[in-house]
């Protein structure tokens, strides 16, 4: 029985189809990355999971139970993208407040607060109002405040936005601890390297649909292939004729840059591309081979950079 089982989930806001038949599973103890450009439907999907969006159709099951069944969502720990904390309260007071909202009392609450302070590495600042804290410290506390009840399912919405590299490493460590504790994690991010580093599998979402799911290697193989990727930068933008001819070879052409999955024979691909460039008068500024990344996968699947 998976931690999350989403079937045919759809939601429209007026004419906008925010979710258009999403199917997705998250296994127990798994970290699933959710990748998608702005407006792809990530937030609507996460808000459907926490119950803030009422789907038009489809089902969500959490550990086998209908998400709308009484108490079914108690297993969720939600960490929003915003710093959703009380700025005039101390870390201890914030953790205690969110612990109480999760139904904790007495010793269980006290234990959760101490655990949260240690988890966020803020035990030494436990009695200071958080308004003067750095962005990284607030982010760590933001994460800790989402999980005082030791949830079995953690929804992390861009937990590292705007933090310095040191705090980011600490947050990665915190996510590692959650994973080691057996929690299933849905990890929404814009950062490909985070997804590659932290996630067991990645789901790519665009225009309200999950267009690919798998491990990094599976996604690479099924999209750009297992070989190297040829990257060629022209001095000027590709003329239309050249772009058409190169696209016929399977290349993605964007203004001055060309990408081509070379499969098992990079040398011949390089030769073909260079020949086409010469034929159409394209002056080459740079050419190199790269191992494919999730960025390549994303571009291949959506035709867009993730940040667009």
């Amino acid at each position: 029985m998976p931690a999350v089982e989403i079937r045919s989930l759809a939601k429209s806001f007026g004419a906008l189809r925010a979710l258009d038949g999403v199917d997705l599973e998250l296994a127990r103890g798994e970290v699933l990355g959710l990748l998608g450009p702005n407006g792809a439907g990530k937030s609507t999907l996460v808000r459907s999971l926490i119950g803030r969006v009422r789907p038009d159709r489809g089902t969500i099951r959490l550990f086998g139970r209908d998400a709308d069944a009484p108490g079914a969502r108690d297993v969720i720990g939600y960490v929003p993208q915003e710093i959703a904390l009380y700025p005039h309260l101390t870390p201890r007071e914030n953790l205690a407040a969110f612990g109480r909202f999760q139904g904790l009392e007495g010793d269980a609450l006290a234990l959760a607060v101490e655990r949260g302070l240690a988890f966020a590495s803020l035990a030494d600042r436990a009695h200071e109002p958080i308004e003067s804290f750095s962005g990284g410290m607030k982010r760590r506390l933001n994460l800790a405040a989402g999980i005082p009840h030791a949830p079995r399912l953690v929804l992390l919405d861009e937990p590292t936005v705007g933090v310095d590299p040191q705090s980011r490493e600490r947050i990665y460590g915190m996510i590692g601890e959650l994973r080691a504790g057996g929690a299933a994690i849905l990890y929404t991010t814009h950062y490909m390297e985070e997804a590659e580093r932290l996630c067991d599998r990645v789901a790519v979402i665009d225009h309200g649909r999950v267009i690919a799911v798998g491990t990094r290697d599976e996604l690479v193989r099924s999209t750009v292939g297992g070989g190297k990727e040829l990257i060629l930068d022209a001095v000027e933008a590709f003329p239309a004729e050249a772009a058409t001819a190169l696209a016929a070879e399977g290349a993605l052409v964007e203004r001055r840059r060309l990408r081509l999955a070379t499969a098992a024979a990079p040398a011949s691909a390089v030769a073909r591309v260079l020949a086409l460039c010469e034929r159409h008068g394209v002056a080459v500024a740079d050419l190199h081979l790269e191992s494919p990344t999730l960025q390549s996968v994303f571009l291949h699947l959506t035709g867009r950079e993730l940040r667009e």
């Binding site: 929003p80 009380y86 999760q102 139904g103 405040a145």
Partner: peptide, 13 residues
């Protein structure tokens, strides 16, 4: 506006 409400309503509150 700050997103705190989302978090609050994701709890048992």
């Amino acid at each position: 506006e700050s997103g705190t409400l989302d978090r609050l309503l994701s709890t048992r509150l």
